[in-house]
Each structure stands twice: as C-alpha cells, then as structure tokens.
Design a protein around this nucleic acid. Structure first.
Lengths: 190, 190
DNA sequence: AAGACGGGAGAACGTGCGTTCTCAGCTCTT
DNA sequence: AAGAGCTGAGAACGCACGTTCTCCCGTCTT
C-alpha cells in the first residue's frame, strides 16, 4: 500500500470514528483495525494521535465548507437567496444519519484546554466559515455586512448545537427565519 | 466531616475542575486532592464518576439559570428590556476569568455518545433555558412567542460557542442586536 | 477502661490507552 | 541466488485512570 493511500484511508477512518464516538473514546487500535493500516505505518504518517486529530479536523473543515458552498451556489438564484440557502443546507445536514453536531465544537469541548493544535484548528474553521458568510452578506445591499455575518454565524452554530442536543433537525427552521428577518431588516431601501 | 458538607465540597470541586479542564482530563484523585474528601467518602456520596458528573451538571444548571434570572429581573425595567438583558448577562459571563463555553455543550461533545445520563442532563438544561426564554417572549406582545424563544436560544448558544472558541466576549454584542431586531420585527402594532 | 465502630490516607488491582519493539515474510538489487 | 531492507501483525511496555482494599487512628458506648 502506498503512503498516500494509507494517509487517505487513515483520515477517512479517523473522521468516521472520531466524529461518531468522540476522540478519547477511539483508540489507535480501532483506527488501525478499521483502516487496515498497520500501526507502524500509522505512526509513519502521523507521529501522534493529536497530529491525526488535527489532520482530521483540517480535512473535515475543507470538505464541510465545500459541501456548504456547493449547495448554496447550486440552490440560490440571487444573492439574497444564498443566506436562507445556508440554513436549508444545515437542515439537510442535520437530517443525515450519524449527525452529531459540529465536529469542531465537540473537539474543542473535549480537547480544547489540553491540545493547543486542536484549539487552533477549531478557531481556523470558525474564521473560515465567518469569512464565507461575510462573502454572502457583502454581496447584498445591507448596511452592516460584518454585523450580519456575525449574527448568521451565531445562528448557524446555535442551530447546530440545538439540533445535536435535541436530536431534532427542525432546529434549523427558526434560525432560518431569523436569518431572513435580520437580512430584510438590514436591506437598504432601493 | 459530615456527609452533606462532603457532598457540597465534592460538587464545588467537580464544577471547578471539570469545567476548567474537561471531564476526562480530571481524575478522581484530583477531585479528592482538591476537595480534601477521602476516596472512600467520595464513593459513598457518588457511586461512580459518571454520577458525580451528572450531579455537577444538575447543580450547575440551577445555579446558571438562577444567575441569569437574577440579572434579568434586576436589570430589566419592562418586559421588552428583559430580552436584551439576557445578552448583557451573557457578556458579563463571557468576561469572567475562566470562562470556557457552555459546560453542557462541552460535556455533551465529550461524553454524549457514551454517557446517556449526561446527555439527558444536557437536554434537560437546554429545555429549561428554552422554557425560561419562552416565559420572556410570552410576556411581550409578539406574534409567535414559541418561534422567538427558539431563535433566542439559538442566538444564546451560538454566542456562547463563538465566545468560547474565539476568546472574545464581544461575541455577545451582535447576538444582542439580532435579538432586538427579531423582537421588534415581531412586535404587534399597538 | 476496653472494645467496637467509622473515617482518612494511600496502596493495590485491573483495565485500557498511546507508543514502541520483535519477528517472520516478501521484494528488489547485484 | 543471496542478502539487505521494508512491511504487516501483534506482542510488549509504561502509564494513568476508576475503583476497591488494607491498615491505622480517633471516638463513642457501656
């Protein structure tokens, strides 16, 4: 097995197991069994468990934002439609089997104070999501795109937390309505 | 040392350590050392670590909601003022040294899939906060108090997550502004 | 006053984890 | 063809944790 292929299988396994069960509930042996990559190779690819967790988070960040952006660009006709489309995508995400909240929030709660690299990856993810939302609010004629992006991020994270804890995907709906209200309240009169 | 006093010291120590470092980073030995309660007594009061975690969460829930309600009732003159006051309190909470996000969200991320009792305590807390917010939205003349309470809960949890990850207490401000916008948008014309 | 009781301190035990080491087999060079 | 080097499987090691056990001391009853 080639080095690159082993890395991919390890990252896929890490995402599957760490997200589903939490980081500290998954041992390196479970990663090895599920991935079929030997421990020796595993430690060649990632020098420690923490390094594997960081790599998993960075990869998940890119894929997560990619899926969001793809959905929004393919479902929103106008710039105004893009903002509610973000919450439509959240709803479909919440409905996926195995949804268990935001991997970054979960990892931060679990490892934040003890693993600085993980905390940095989580912060980076939130900054990138915020930048994406700022791109959306900057494309419509609102008074304060920065503030609106902050508010949307808060609604996104809040909806995700509530959907995870309550197990109710419909938690996306009031947040979507809130986003629309906030957007229209800030729209400049033409 | 009396039984009740030992319990209180254990719960105080548990709150201090579990919240600051996370549950699995704090051993029972650390609880014992910090509290001064012997291991024997500890296991007489709480039969397992999970039981201690649950008791800590239930106690923190009551104290947290109590502090919120006290602040709101003493700082809000009218029913309309109560809703922004919630976010003012969040801001003061975020500014406290040692703030590390929502203990319930953190515990859920860390233990959710493996500890059903913890997950239930977290759900209960969110339901009680929602009920409190519903009490506030029901006291003003809005079209849909249920939806507004859902939205406020989302903003509260979102602001808390973002403040914890970014380390920036000002994360409360856009959420407060959003709450005010949502409230005024729903106010019935007199 | 003496013995039974309870409590504190900490050792002990079993388990599970992250990480490294061992060993046997396969592959590729010369 | 032979040996060097890499690979995978899994044992081994050290450590930390949750939980229980042991021992010794103070206290309270009769």
């Amino acid at each position: 097995m080639r080095h690159e292929e082993a890395k991919i299988r390890l990252l896929e396994t890490a995402e599957e197991l760490f997200y589903a069960r939490g980081v500290h509930a998954v041992g390196m042996d479970a990663i090895r069994t599920h991935s079929g990559v030997s421990l020796k190779r595993l430690y060649q690819c990632f020098p420690s468990k923490e390094a594997l967790v960081e790599a998993y988070l960075l990869r998940r960040d890119e894929r997560w934002r990619g899926r969001l952006a793809d959905y929004v660009t393919s479902h929103a006709e106008t710039s105004e439609d893009a903002i509610p489309a973000v919450f439509d995508w959240l709803h479909t995400w919440f409905c996926e089997p195995g949804f268990r909240g935001c991997a970054f929030v979960n990892s931060f709660g679990e490892l934040g104070p003890t693993a600085p690299g993980v905390a940095a990856a989580v912060r980076l993810h939130k900054e990138l999501v915020h930048a994406y939302l700022l791109g959306l609010t900057g494309a419509v004629a609102v008074k304060n795109p920065e503030e609106l992006a902050d508010q949307l991020l808060s609604l996104v994270d809040g909806a995700t937390v509530i959907a995870a804890i309550s197990g109710e995907p419909a938690a996306a709906l009031p947040s979507k309505a809130a986003a629309v209200t906030l957007l229209t309240a800030q729209l400049q009169p033409v």
